[in-house]
Protein backbone atom coordinates (compact mmCIF):
# COMPACT_ATOMS: atom_id res chain seq x y z
CA UNK A 1 0.00 0.00 0.00
CA UNK A 2 1.15 3.52 -0.80
CA UNK A 3 0.17 6.36 1.53
CA UNK A 4 0.74 9.98 0.60
CA UNK A 5 0.46 12.47 3.49
CA UNK A 6 0.43 16.23 2.97
CA UNK A 7 2.91 16.16 0.09
CA UNK A 8 3.89 19.49 -1.45
CA UNK A 9 6.67 20.15 -3.92
CA UNK A 10 8.51 23.21 -5.16
CA UNK A 11 10.85 23.78 -8.10
CA UNK A 12 12.83 26.73 -6.78
CA UNK A 13 10.19 29.14 -5.50
CA UNK A 14 7.43 27.77 -7.70
CA UNK A 15 5.03 25.39 -5.93
CA UNK A 16 3.86 22.60 -8.21
CA UNK A 17 2.09 20.26 -5.74
CA UNK A 18 -0.16 21.48 -2.92
CA UNK A 19 -0.61 19.41 0.24
CA UNK A 20 -1.71 16.16 -1.40
CA UNK A 21 -2.96 13.21 0.63
CA UNK A 22 -4.33 9.91 -0.68
CA UNK A 23 -3.81 6.15 -0.58
CA UNK A 24 -3.28 3.49 -3.22
CA UNK A 25 -4.16 -0.04 -2.17
CA UNK A 26 -2.14 -3.05 -3.29
CA UNK A 27 -3.29 -4.48 -6.62
CA UNK A 28 -4.94 -1.24 -7.78
CA UNK A 29 -4.55 0.33 -11.22
CA UNK A 30 -4.33 4.06 -10.50
CA UNK A 31 -4.75 6.46 -13.34
CA UNK A 32 -3.26 9.94 -12.66
CA UNK A 33 -4.84 12.22 -15.17
CA UNK A 34 -4.46 15.90 -15.82
CA UNK A 35 -3.30 18.41 -18.36
CA UNK A 36 0.29 19.33 -19.01
CA UNK A 37 1.70 21.23 -16.03
CA UNK A 38 -0.90 19.78 -13.64
CA UNK A 39 1.90 18.13 -11.63
CA UNK A 40 1.16 14.49 -12.47
CA UNK A 41 4.73 13.67 -13.60
CA UNK A 42 6.16 15.30 -10.46
CA UNK A 43 3.73 13.34 -8.29
CA UNK A 44 4.62 10.12 -10.10
CA UNK A 45 8.34 10.82 -9.58
CA UNK A 46 7.70 11.33 -5.85
CA UNK A 47 5.58 8.16 -5.59
CA UNK A 48 8.30 6.16 -7.31
CA UNK A 49 11.06 7.51 -4.98
CA UNK A 50 12.84 9.22 -7.90
CA UNK A 51 12.25 12.64 -6.33
CA UNK A 52 12.14 13.71 -2.70
CA UNK A 53 9.07 15.82 -1.89
CA UNK A 54 9.75 19.29 -0.48
CA UNK A 55 7.19 18.64 2.25
CA UNK A 56 5.10 15.73 3.47
CA UNK A 57 5.63 12.01 3.78
CA UNK A 58 5.43 8.98 1.54
CA UNK A 59 4.87 5.52 3.00
CA UNK A 60 5.20 2.35 0.99
CA UNK A 61 3.97 -0.78 2.81
CA UNK A 62 3.82 1.26 6.03
CA UNK A 63 7.50 2.20 5.75
CA UNK A 64 8.48 5.85 5.38
CA UNK A 65 10.58 6.23 2.23
CA UNK A 66 12.83 8.72 4.06
CA UNK A 67 13.79 6.00 6.55
CA UNK A 68 14.62 3.29 4.06
CA UNK A 69 18.34 2.55 4.52
CA UNK A 70 19.14 1.20 1.06
CA UNK A 71 16.84 3.13 -1.25
CA UNK A 72 18.69 1.82 -4.35
CA UNK A 73 17.98 -1.81 -3.49
CA UNK A 74 14.44 -0.91 -2.46
CA UNK A 75 13.87 0.77 -5.83
CA UNK A 76 15.43 -2.09 -7.77
CA UNK A 77 13.56 -4.86 -5.98
CA UNK A 78 10.12 -3.33 -5.42
CA UNK A 79 9.59 -0.73 -8.14
CA UNK A 80 9.42 -0.88 -11.92
CA UNK A 81 9.40 2.34 -13.92
CA UNK A 82 8.36 2.96 -17.52
CA UNK A 83 9.31 6.36 -18.91
CA UNK A 84 7.66 8.16 -21.80
CA UNK A 85 10.84 8.08 -23.87
CA UNK A 86 11.85 4.53 -22.81
CA UNK A 87 15.32 5.78 -21.68
CA UNK A 88 17.28 2.73 -22.70
CA UNK A 89 21.08 2.91 -22.44
CA UNK A 90 22.27 3.30 -26.02
CA UNK A 91 25.56 1.42 -25.67
CA UNK A 92 23.94 -1.70 -24.20
CA UNK A 93 21.96 -4.16 -26.31
CA UNK A 94 18.38 -5.07 -25.42
CA UNK A 95 19.33 -8.06 -23.26
CA UNK A 96 22.01 -6.03 -21.45
CA UNK A 97 19.62 -3.13 -20.86
CA UNK A 98 17.25 -5.47 -19.06
CA UNK A 99 20.09 -7.29 -17.29
CA UNK A 100 21.33 -3.92 -15.97
CA UNK A 101 18.08 -3.53 -14.05
CA UNK A 102 17.71 -7.19 -13.03
CA UNK A 103 18.57 -8.44 -9.57
CA UNK A 104 20.98 -11.36 -9.66
CA UNK A 105 18.29 -13.87 -8.70
CA UNK A 106 15.90 -12.50 -11.33
CA UNK A 107 18.19 -12.62 -14.37
CA UNK A 108 16.65 -15.97 -15.34
CA UNK A 109 13.41 -14.06 -16.05
CA UNK A 110 14.89 -12.00 -18.88
CA UNK A 111 14.38 -14.36 -21.83
CA UNK A 112 10.97 -15.40 -20.56
CA UNK A 113 9.78 -11.78 -20.38
CA UNK A 114 11.28 -10.92 -23.77
CA UNK A 115 9.45 -13.91 -25.23
CA UNK A 116 6.19 -12.92 -23.54
CA UNK A 117 6.47 -9.40 -24.96
CA UNK A 118 7.32 -10.76 -28.42
CA UNK A 119 10.79 -9.20 -28.59
CA UNK A 120 13.07 -12.15 -27.83
CA UNK A 121 14.57 -12.02 -31.33
CA UNK A 122 15.65 -8.41 -30.65
CA UNK A 123 17.76 -9.27 -27.61
CA UNK A 124 21.11 -8.74 -29.32
CA UNK A 125 20.11 -5.51 -31.06
CA UNK A 126 20.82 -2.01 -29.80
CA UNK A 127 18.09 0.55 -28.96
CA UNK A 128 18.74 2.56 -32.13
CA UNK A 129 18.20 -0.57 -34.22
CA UNK A 130 14.56 -1.14 -33.20
CA UNK A 131 11.28 0.78 -33.58
CA UNK A 132 9.69 3.12 -31.01
CA UNK A 133 7.01 0.56 -30.13
CA UNK A 134 9.63 -2.15 -29.67
CA UNK A 135 11.71 0.16 -27.47
CA UNK A 136 8.73 0.81 -25.22
CA UNK A 137 8.13 -2.94 -24.92
CA UNK A 138 11.80 -3.33 -23.92
CA UNK A 139 11.29 -0.58 -21.32
CA UNK A 140 8.28 -2.49 -20.02
CA UNK A 141 10.28 -5.73 -19.93
CA UNK A 142 12.93 -3.88 -17.92
CA UNK A 143 10.28 -2.67 -15.47
CA UNK A 144 8.85 -6.18 -15.07
CA UNK A 145 12.06 -8.20 -14.80
CA UNK A 146 12.33 -8.06 -11.00
CA UNK A 147 8.62 -8.88 -10.56
CA UNK A 148 8.11 -5.57 -8.73
CA UNK A 149 5.28 -4.87 -6.30
CA UNK A 150 4.55 -1.55 -8.01
CA UNK A 151 4.94 -0.35 -11.60
CA UNK A 152 4.97 3.37 -12.34
CA UNK A 153 4.52 4.56 -15.89
CA UNK A 154 4.82 8.17 -17.02
CA UNK A 155 3.04 8.76 -20.34
CA UNK A 156 4.05 5.24 -21.42
CA UNK A 157 2.23 5.61 -24.73
CA UNK A 158 3.11 9.24 -25.35
CA UNK A 159 5.37 8.41 -28.27
CA UNK A 160 3.42 5.42 -29.59
CA UNK A 161 0.68 4.90 -32.19
CA UNK A 162 -2.76 3.54 -31.19
CA UNK A 163 -1.92 -0.08 -31.92
CA UNK A 164 1.25 -0.05 -29.79
CA UNK A 165 -0.50 1.99 -27.08
CA UNK A 166 -3.14 -0.72 -26.63
CA UNK A 167 -0.43 -3.40 -26.45
CA UNK A 168 1.27 -1.47 -23.63
CA UNK A 169 -2.01 -0.96 -21.70
CA UNK A 170 -2.84 -4.65 -21.98
CA UNK A 171 0.61 -5.62 -20.76
CA UNK A 172 0.18 -3.33 -17.77
CA UNK A 173 -3.26 -4.76 -17.09
CA UNK A 174 -1.78 -8.25 -17.22
CA UNK A 175 0.82 -7.27 -14.62
CA UNK A 176 -2.09 -6.11 -12.47
CA UNK A 177 -3.60 -9.61 -12.58
CA UNK A 178 -0.39 -10.93 -11.02
CA UNK A 179 -0.99 -8.70 -7.98
CA UNK A 180 1.23 -5.82 -9.02
CA UNK A 181 0.06 -2.27 -8.26
CA UNK A 182 0.12 -0.10 -11.38
CA UNK A 183 0.26 3.70 -11.36
CA UNK A 184 0.04 5.46 -14.71
CA UNK A 185 0.26 9.20 -15.39
CA UNK A 186 -1.12 10.06 -18.81
CA UNK A 187 -3.14 12.40 -21.00
CA UNK A 188 -4.60 9.42 -22.78
CA UNK A 189 -8.16 8.95 -21.52
CA UNK A 190 -8.41 5.46 -23.06
CA UNK A 191 -6.59 4.21 -20.00
CA UNK A 192 -9.67 4.87 -17.87
CA UNK A 193 -11.16 1.53 -18.93
CA UNK A 194 -8.26 -0.32 -17.29
CA UNK A 195 -8.11 1.84 -14.13
CA UNK A 196 -9.57 0.84 -10.75
CA UNK A 197 -8.86 4.25 -9.23
CA UNK A 198 -8.53 7.66 -10.88
CA UNK A 199 -6.95 10.81 -9.47
CA UNK A 200 -7.44 13.97 -11.49
CA UNK A 201 -4.92 16.76 -10.94
CA UNK A 202 -5.20 20.41 -11.82
CA UNK A 203 -2.57 23.01 -10.92
CA UNK A 204 -0.99 20.66 -8.41
CA UNK A 205 -4.20 19.87 -6.56
CA UNK A 206 -6.56 16.89 -6.56
CA UNK A 207 -9.93 17.75 -8.10
Amino acid sequence: MIKVSNVSHYYGKEQVLFDLSFEIKSGEFLFLSGESGSGKSTLLSILSTLLKPSKGELLIDDESVDKIKNIDYFRQSKIGFVFQFHYLINYLNIYENIALAALDDKKHNINEILKKLGILELSSRYPNEISGGQRQRVALARALVNEPKIIFADEPTGSLDSKNSIIVYELLAEALKGGTTVVVASHDMRIEEYATQIIRLKDGQIL
Binding site: R75, Y87, I89, L100
Partner: peptide, 14 residues
Protein backbone atom coordinates in the same frame (compact mmCIF):
# COMPACT_ATOMS: atom_id res chain seq x y z
CA UNK B 1 23.68 12.86 -16.59
CA UNK B 2 20.63 11.31 -18.24
CA UNK B 3 22.35 7.92 -18.33
CA UNK B 4 23.28 8.17 -14.65
CA UNK B 5 19.72 9.24 -13.83
CA UNK B 6 18.35 6.17 -15.63
CA UNK B 7 20.77 3.91 -13.76
CA UNK B 8 19.74 5.44 -10.44
CA UNK B 9 16.07 5.07 -11.40
CA UNK B 10 16.74 1.38 -12.09
CA UNK B 11 18.13 1.02 -8.59
CA UNK B 12 21.83 1.12 -9.38
CA UNK B 13 23.85 2.56 -6.52
CA UNK B 14 26.09 5.62 -6.62
Amino acid sequence: KEEFGIMRALGKSR
